[in-house]
């Protein structure tokens, strides 16, 4: 499938900023089932951009802008070709061993309730893939999914106490729960073709199964991602894979507006 992505983030400041430094995880990498046709990260003011690869193998872009800056827009436009591989990830850069992803973080620490939930839904099967699928479906069934908004720092444990959650929170709950079942799991941020208006990238997750490798799970659909997902970055939690991490030097408040458009191009199928 040919997918077009447009992702705009606009920061407006109540007072001009002297400098802005941001780390952007906004560029997808090629895998066996995802080919980046074109991709561009643009900024609407004088800025220097530097590309690198972080410790997790994600493509990152450092953005350095000198003030005075009253507003800054980071616009991503690109096209990606995808094929469906039933969620199995092949050909991604994997600089870290899967066992690392058993590590928990402040945002993915499971509460006793979440751990019990993971135990209950996976009870009765010893098959690791089956357990993960059940977990994925159970999360899908339990929560009403709401559109993503910019990250507020909600933890998996806090999200589990609610009823309706965004893709980011569902994914963090999956990650937290899977780790309690001794499955290495990680957070994935990227884009998903759907009909909901988006104010943030899409979040889902991947868990590692011996013999198969990393397998994607999207609790928003209750299924594994197919050719409608564009994988951008992975991390231990949503912070580790955040699209933009930044610091500004200057007074005043900021306001962030994000607009994500994901469209299907052509009718090759």
């Amino acid at each position: 499938m040919r997918i077009a992505v447009e992702h705009r983030s606009v920061y407006r400041f109540t007072q001009p900023q002297a400098r802005i430094v941001q780390m952007l995880r906004l560029t997808p990498c090629d895998t066996q089932h995802q080919t980046v046709v074109s991709w561009m990260v643009g900024v609407d003011c004088d800025a220097r951009l530097r590309d690198a690869v972080d410790g997790y193998g994600n493509a990152v872009t450092m953005l350095y802008a000198e003030g005075p800056i009253e507003a800054i827009e980071i616009a991503v436009t690109g096209e990606v070709l995808t094929t469906d591989n039933a969620g199995v990830v092949r050909g991604a850069a994997e600089p870290l061993p899967p066992a690392l992803f058993l590590r928990t973080t402040a945002r993915t620490a499971a509460s006793p309730e979440l751990a019990a939930f993971a135990r209950d839904v996976s009870d009765g099967t010893g098959d690791p893939i089956e357990r993960l699928h059940r977990l994925n479906q159970a999360l899908h069934a339990r929560f009403r999914c709401v559109p993503d908004v910019p990250d507020t720092g909600l933890t998996a444990a806090e999200a589990f106490a609610g009823k309706a959650q965004a893709s980011r929170d569902l994914a963090q709950m999956f990650v937290a729960a899977a780790r309690t079942l001794d499955a290495p799991a990680r957070y994935v941020s990227g884009y998903r073709l759907d009909h909901m208006a988006q104010c943030a990238p899409h979040g889902w997750c991947e868990a590692w199964v011996a013999g198969l490798g990393w397998i994607g799970f999207d609790p928003v659909t209750g299924m594994s991602p197919g050719d409608g997902h564009v994988r951008v970055a992975v991390g231990l939690d949503a912070d580790g894979a955040a699209a933009i991490a930044g610091r500004r030097i200057g007074h005043g408040d900021e306001e962030l507006a994000v607009d994500v458009q994901v469209d299907r191009l052509g009718n090759e199928e």
């Binding site: 410790g55 600089p95 066992a99 590590r103 231990l236």
Partner: peptide
């Protein structure tokens, strides 16, 4: 770790191992 001198989890699950600077 590959040669089994150290139990991998002792390193990988240790907060002092910083994946951010791996590589």
């Amino acid at each position: 770790l590959d040669e089994g001198i150290l139990p991998p989890e002792l390193v990988l699950h240790n907060e002092q191992f910083r994946p951010e600077v791996a590589g």
